[in-house]
């Protein structure tokens, strides 16, 4: 379990993390979501004791990270796949980390196999692709068989096969009862992997909810098409539906009525229906809606 309490971090004039309070619970995948520059990486660095918070605390299993004697047994983290000495062979890279936490050589070979790098154990890590580097970082995180796993943007640089692999791995680790905390700026990716989402923007907490709660926030509507569109619209409006014409073709978008209700109304009025589809705002749209005010670097088309 990871507990943040009023965590703040100031770099000069910039408040990178602003009074963050939340817990990351075991047994599920918690997604840490926010646009670039929202303070996700800084928060993770503070959890690992790499940066000192300006205010507040970050506790791992009830203790500050720095007080854990052999932390790799409790927390496995991957912040940056490039955080290694490229001149060192993959095996030696993992071996020196293992030894620092009293983990045996055999475990190094095991985690290399686990992430599919067994064949390149004696290659220098600097020759690895970004995807292989990510796998090596994940291997390092798994060394101590920790109860908490924390990955910063783990799917970055992975090919589609690798993305499916890591998604399965993370879900499996959470199912074993571990705490899995992963950051991303990709809402759709998180929706497929995470059970719970913590959304931050400009360093402060915007939302902390399950993925279902998130999806239910999205606006819903039904798109209908009929050869007698005008009669249908009139019938739906009498039933309390709010009808707008869809952006494409002759279709109409109906809010306030469910698809089934629309079908029943059409049947009662004797109007044929040629198309009836339910729509829901994507998680991306929910995410953009939430973080719109807190995006640090807006792209502009009319610059």
């Amino acid at each position: 379990m990871i507990e943040l309490n009023g965590l703040s971090k100031r770099y000069g004039d910039t408040l990178a993390v602003d009074d963050l309070t939340f817990d990351v619970m075991p047994g599920c995948v918690t997604g840490f979501l926010g646009p670039n520059g929202a303070g996700k990486t800084t928060t993770m660095r503070i959890i690992l004791g790499l940066d000192a918070p300006t205010k507040g605390t970050a506790l791992v299993n009830g203790k500050p990270y720095g007080q854990i004697k052999f932390p790799l047994h409790e927390v496995g983290a991957l912040l940056d796949a490039k955080a290694l000495h490229g001149g060192r062979k993959a095996f030696d890279h993992l071996l020196c980390l293992a030894q620092s936490n009293n983990i045996g050589r055999a475990r190094v070979a095991t985690v290399l196999e686990l992430v599919g790098l067994g064949d390149v154990a004696n290659k220098r890590a600097g020759t690895f692709s970004l995807g292989m580097g990510q796998r090596l970082g994940i291997a390092a995180a798994m060394l101590g068989d920790p109860g908490i796993l924390m990955f910063d943007e783990p799917v970055n640089g992975l090919d589609p096969e690798g993305i499916v692999w890591i998604r399965t791995l993370l879900r499996g680790l959470a199912a074993e009862g571990r705490t899995v905390f992963i950051s991303s700026h990709l809402m759709t990716e998180m929706a497929m992997t995470a059970d719970r989402l913590i959304v931050v923007g400009r360093g402060h907490l915007i939302a902390d909810a399950t993925v279902e709660e998130f999806t239910s926030r999205g606006e819903q509507w039904v798109r209908v098409r009929s050869p007698h569109q005008r009669e249908l619209i009139a019938a739906l409006q009498r039933a309390g539906g709010i009808v707008t014409s869809a952006s494409i073709g002759d279709d109409s978008d109906v809010r306030g009525l469910k698809a089934g209700q629309i079908g029943d109304i059409a049947l009662a009025a004797g109007i044929a229906i040629h198309g009836l589809t339910e729509h829901r705002a994507s998680l991306e749209e929910v995410f953009f809606g939430l973080t719109d005010d807190s995006v640090e670097y807006h792209g502009s088309v009319n610059a």
């Binding site: 690992l48 720095g66 932390p71 912040l79 490039k82 955080a83 290694l84 000495h85 980390l97």
Partner: peptide, 18 residues
């Protein structure tokens, strides 16, 4: 210095926070 130049220091300090 090679730990800082390569970024290894972050991995090293996460393994040995003392």
């Amino acid at each position: 210095s090679s730990e800082y130049t390569t970024g290894m220091i972050r991995t090293s300090l996460a393994a040995v926070p003392r």
